[in-house]
Design a protein around this nucleic acid. Structure first.
Lengths: 184, 184
DNA sequence: TTTTTTAACCTCGGTGTCGATGTATATCTA
DNA sequence: TAGATATACATCGACACCGAGGTTAAAAAA
């Protein structure tokens, strides 16, 4: 997703792509050569991108990569209907968010944000004692577990706040007609 | 780490363990049977845990798992000197945090928190334009990228705040002797 | 009594990722 | 001119993880 997402902005060669992916997901989870180049090849085989050899500006020749229509469609499908992990895993979610603008339709964008919003709504119950009963934060012995739950709660609220504002904006921009669904 | 960490609290059988891991890292990144059971076997082979078959309280017989001294030592090593990913990847970091109390020594705990603190300190530069110059948040076109950086910043500050308080507490509890290192 | 359900455990094949290694090329330095 | 460095691409083996499938056993439902 990150590869096609970046290429959708402008053509890039593999090495540049690698650095951009590394900066995005990256200082968190750098991408190895052995991951990137085979993936590029897979995307090329699937006709999601084309490559064009150009002289290297500094060193060895580059393979300039350009996204195709098929690739753009694929990217949009991934964004419009993301796998569960992209909603629930923070790392993946942030990658998705970084390219959500490529999903041009505000209504569709809002739907994706709503899925995340729904996920964040369910209260996190992280720890249980020996007999299986949930342990509330205040009864946790470990200050680290306490902090973990505190931070988790606080950051969730921050994101929920942003999501709500954003979803509102998007629905307004889409000319959302609440009236027509008076059954809700 | 999660397996040994949970077993350090009290003995558990695999199925229970699975649910606990799923609740912790889990609603974020559930663990599959095909991952859990081979890993348990690996830890058993490495003598990090022992198993004892007990009649199932509800159904098939359980394998009660207990951590050994070797396992405890291993867990402490992982906690004391975590691989880079455990500092930089939020998911992994939260797992580590959930078991950091097993690293009994407050000074060692503080050192681990300090590593995370140091990581959070470096300013995140996530996006670059075509010629490679970094794009500051306010010049980003996408509201999603803007939000991404906003949320990232805000949650980082929240965690940094907690980390600083926590590190202070731990150093105090350890009877931190600043005087003796007057060269610093 | 038979079937279904749920708990609990296990295995296997496919896939994704990493890390090590290797190659080629242009620039910079000794 | 020789080496070092950084760019840029690629492959391969090892390993982790997943998901699908299968097995055993007890309780609940038919």
């Amino acid at each position: 997703m990150a590869i096609l997402g970046f290429l959708r902005d402008f053509p890039l060669h593999g090495y540049d792509l690698k650095n951009r992916v590394a900066s995005l997901a990256g200082h968190v989870r750098p991408v190895a050569d052995g991951t990137l180049y085979p993936t590029i090849k897979k995307l090329e085989d699937a006709q999601c991108l084309t490559r064009r050899t150009a002289p290297g500006s500094v060193a060895a020749p580059r393979h300039m990569l350009e996204i195709t229509q098929i690739g753009t469609d694929q990217l949009r499908r991934w964004l419009r209907d993301p796998e569960p992990g992209f909603i629930t895993d923070d790392n993946k979610w942030y990658v998705l968010l970084a390219f959500l603008h490529h999903l041009e339709n505000p209504r569709e964008q809002a739907l994706v944000l709503a899925r995340r919003r729904e996920f964040l709504d369910q209260p996190a119950q992280l720890f249980f004692d020996a007999d299986g009963t949930p342990v509330p934060p205040e009864r946790l012995d470990s200050p680290f577990r306490k902090g973990l739950m505190q931070i988790h709660r606080s950051t969730n609220l921050t994101e929920i706040d942003w999501l709500d504002r954003q979803i509102g904006d998007l629905n307004q921009r889409a000319g959302y007609a609440v009236r027509q669904r008076d059954g809700d």
